[in-house]
Computed example of a mutant assay.
Amino acid sequence: MRKLLQQDEVAVIFGGWTSASRKAMLPVVEELNGLLFYPVQYEGMEASPNIFYTGAAPNQQIVPAVEWLLENKGTRFFLLGSDYVFPRTSNQIIKAQLEDLGGEVLGEEYTPLGHTDYNTVISRIRETQPDVIFNTLNGDSNVAFFKQLSDAGFTPDDVTVLSVSVAEEEIRGIGAGVLAGHLVSWNYYQTTDSEANEAFVANYKAAYGDKRVTSDPIEAGYFGVYLWAQAVEKAGTTDIDAVREAAAGLEFEAPGGLVRIDGDSQHTWKTVRIGEIQADGMIKELAGVP
């Protein structure tokens, strides 16, 4: 980040993945008055004048997912996440929400990033018999967890797993066979029904290969570029302060639907979508919340 802003003198940076990466970049981009468009869902509780957040905050992914699960799947929750800021903060929000809405937390487990042995966790799941596992694992740990959960004889009929870091690209890596029937919460799916998305998916596959898939972070990264371009056109310059001021309230017809930049928080207004993973690796939308 420091090299890009000081040596390369870039006008804007699009990227970042984990919340830890964003929190490492934040003080640098603020110190040097740069501009970062961050495209991944995160734990919220942050607003920087030098960051535009095009991924979901908890009220756009986690909170509506918990509400939907309570109405449709049960009240007994088991919380499983990787041991870093996003899962721990998200689960603080979930626990407060469940307490308020009459849900119950039967277990809460964290494992290091890259962890691969989930037999002990699965034993706890078997003992507590939750209705729902709310999954905030990140990265390769999802591969190990879902395969070991399936090997242990658990199916979506036995316990619903809802994930917030597993999208179409991760399904390719984990395997749709062990994920089919489990749930996810995002703002966009490759199967989202819109003319803009039909063109987006076709163009993406033409560029990167027919077997490649789109996903929520890909879509959020994509429309962030267009929102920045609109702000630059409106401001008539790439000057950071002018672009920030011009960006407030801008809208774009993204593949996932209309998005709008909130001028106060620099987060993005989006649509929430609860989905079910299908045997072909695609995601079927079950519910949408504007």
Score class of each variant (00 low, 15 high):
residue 75 T to D: 15
residue 76 R to K: 15
residue 76 R to V: 03
residue 76 R to F: 06
residue 77 F to D: 02
residue 77 F to G: 00
residue 78 F to Y: 15
residue 78 F to L: 13
residue 78 F to N: 06
residue 78 F to M: 11
residue 79 L to W: 04
residue 80 L to R: 01
residue 81 G to M: 06
residue 81 G to I: 06
residue 81 G to C: 08
residue 82 S to C: 11
residue 82 S to P: 10
residue 82 S to D: 09
residue 84 Y to T: 06
residue 84 Y to C: 03
residue 86 F to D: 00
residue 86 F to K: 02
residue 90 S to D: 08
residue 91 N to Q: 14
residue 93 I to M: 10
residue 93 I to G: 03
residue 94 I to E: 00
residue 94 I to T: 09
residue 95 K to M: 10
residue 95 K to I: 07
residue 96 A to N: 15
residue 96 A to P: 06
residue 97 Q to F: 10
residue 98 L to G: 04
residue 98 L to C: 10
residue 99 E to P: 05
residue 99 E to M: 11
residue 100 D to Q: 13
residue 101 L to G: 09
residue 101 L to K: 14
residue 103 G to M: 11
residue 103 G to C: 12
residue 103 G to D: 13
residue 104 E to F: 04
residue 105 V to W: 01
residue 105 V to D: 01
residue 105 V to Q: 04
residue 107 G to I: 05
residue 108 E to I: 05
residue 108 E to P: 04
residue 109 E to C: 10
residue 109 E to K: 14
residue 110 Y to W: 08
residue 111 T to N: 11
residue 112 P to V: 07
residue 113 L to S: 05
residue 114 G to M: 11
residue 114 G to D: 11
residue 115 H to E: 13
residue 115 H to V: 04
residue 115 H to C: 05
residue 117 D to H: 09
residue 117 D to T: 09
residue 117 D to C: 12
residue 118 Y to G: 03
residue 118 Y to P: 04
residue 119 N to Y: 09
residue 119 N to T: 14
residue 119 N to C: 09
residue 120 T to C: 06
residue 120 T to Q: 15
residue 121 V to R: 00
residue 121 V to N: 02
residue 121 V to Q: 05
residue 123 S to P: 02
residue 123 S to Q: 15
residue 124 R to S: 14
residue 125 I to L: 08
residue 126 R to V: 10
residue 127 E to G: 13
residue 127 E to Y: 13
residue 127 E to R: 15
residue 128 T to Q: 14
residue 128 T to I: 08
residue 129 Q to R: 14
residue 130 P to Y: 05
residue 131 D to K: 03
residue 131 D to R: 05
residue 132 V to G: 03
residue 135 N to T: 09
residue 138 N to G: 12
residue 139 G to A: 12
residue 143 V to K: 08
residue 145 F to L: 13
residue 147 K to S: 08
residue 148 Q to A: 07
residue 149 L to Y: 00
residue 149 L to D: 01
residue 149 L to K: 03
residue 150 S to T: 13
residue 150 S to F: 07
residue 152 A to K: 04
residue 152 A to S: 14
residue 153 G to Y: 11
residue 154 F to N: 07
residue 160 T to E: 13
residue 162 L to S: 06
residue 164 V to L: 14
residue 164 V to D: 03
residue 165 S to G: 12
residue 166 V to L: 12
residue 167 A to Q: 09
residue 168 E to F: 06
residue 170 E to T: 02
residue 171 I to S: 02
residue 174 I to T: 01
residue 176 A to P: 07
residue 176 A to R: 02
residue 176 A to Y: 04
residue 177 G to A: 15
residue 178 V to N: 01
residue 180 A to Q: 14
residue 180 A to K: 09
residue 181 G to D: 06
residue 181 G to V: 05
